[in-house]
Amino acid sequence: MVAKKTPLYDEHVKLGGKIVDYAGWFLPVQYEGLIPEHEAVRNAAGLFDVSHMGEIVVKGKDALAYLQYLLTNDIASIETDQIIYTFMCYPDGGVVDDFLVYKYSEEEYLLVVNAANTDKDFKWMIDNKKDFNIIIENKSDQIGEVAIQGPKSEKILQKLTDTDLSSIKPFHFNRKVNISGIECMVSRTGYTGEDGFEVYSPAEGIVKIWNDILEAGKEDGIKPTGLGCRDTLRFEAGMPLYGNEISKDITPLEGGLKFFVKLDKEEDFIGKEALNKQWKEGLTRKVAGFELLERGIPREGYEVYKEGKKIGHVTTGYMSPTLKKSIGNALIDINEIELGNEVDVMIRNRPVKAKIISRKFLKK
């Protein structure tokens, strides 16, 4: 299958982006380089093309009841124009996907899902529609999306709109923000651990918005940013990646994300029974943070040992651009996750000493 192009593909090529096939999409992994792009987001601002993300609308009089049945978090706890992070699970507690739910009204919600999972998610939602009085629509091809992230994001984006962006609080959104003469939905969300906004527009308007944001942010040091630093930024901020810290084989509880699984909500949800059982019986493994005590760079899939016995594997690992240390996450035996515990990460068949640390790598 040939990879798809977002509406911004030609802009990435013009800017010298190094294009890769990611989740079935041609996207820039970097432009200038991972480190300068990462640092731009931490210190000024970066602009990401996230038009590949999936957008699925659920509407109808049973919309809330359906989402409560489908998802692990308590969707009834949010107000109109508010956003919540959640998981959609299989009956065995494994994760179908993790995503944000935007509440338009009591009877209409937007789910912004991972690009690689869009078709799978949509099918899962249709297959589990039951008798709920709802309509489920995949709007992904109609919507363009960019994310401006970093401490100068508000200052830069404010130049392009009359809407007071400071009025949009974290995990809230405004559906009627005029940016560059185009009506957009703007949310104060992102995947970097920095302040920032995600801008949704009709697909045909996103090129103008992209170019106008880069122009507006020139003096403030904005850079176009690729998938490479998106991963290092989210990882430093302690955010999970589907397929790494959570997956069909790794439950949200094992991923250390119980806060987003409301086992005490009245409604039964898909996977609740299995997750409840897992929690009550006690986890046997969990994702923990670690720091290498010797030279080396940990990579996804590397095995972790304790006293010669395999206890797990690395889910994400990097030389952190911000901390200048080799750190990672690993899914390991629950008895080995105590802070300060020393383990060995196998790097090129050589055991490299590491110690368990908090996954909150960034002190923000």
Rank of each mutant, 00 (worst) to 15 (best):
T72R: 04
N73E: 15
I75K: 10
I75S: 01
I75F: 06
A76L: 08
A76T: 14
S77A: 15
I78S: 09
I78G: 12
Q82P: 05
Q82K: 15
I83F: 04
I84K: 14
I84F: 12
Y85C: 04
T86E: 07
T86G: 11
T86R: 02
T86L: 08
F87D: 09
M88S: 12
M88Q: 12
M88E: 13
M88A: 13
M88K: 07
C89P: 09
Y90G: 03
P91Q: 05
P91G: 05
P91C: 08
D92K: 07
G93Q: 10
G94R: 13
V96I: 14
D97H: 05
D97Q: 13
F99N: 11
L100K: 13
L100M: 14
L100Q: 09
L100V: 09
V101D: 01
Y102L: 14
Y104R: 15
Y104Q: 14
Y104I: 10
E106G: 09
E106P: 10
E106S: 08
E108C: 12
E108G: 09
E108T: 07
L111D: 03
V112R: 00
V112N: 02
V112D: 01
N114K: 03
A116L: 10
A116P: 03
N117Q: 11
N117G: 01
T118Q: 01
T118F: 01
D119G: 02
K120S: 02
K120F: 05
D121I: 01
D121Q: 00
F122S: 00
F122N: 00
K123W: 00
M125A: 08
N128A: 14
N128P: 10
K129H: 05
K129F: 08
K130Q: 08
F132G: 03
N133P: 04
I134A: 11
I134E: 11
I135A: 12
I136T: 02
N138A: 02
K139Q: 14
K139M: 11
S140C: 09
S140D: 09
D141L: 13
Q142G: 14
Q142T: 07
I143T: 13
I143Q: 10
G144R: 11
G144A: 10
G144C: 11
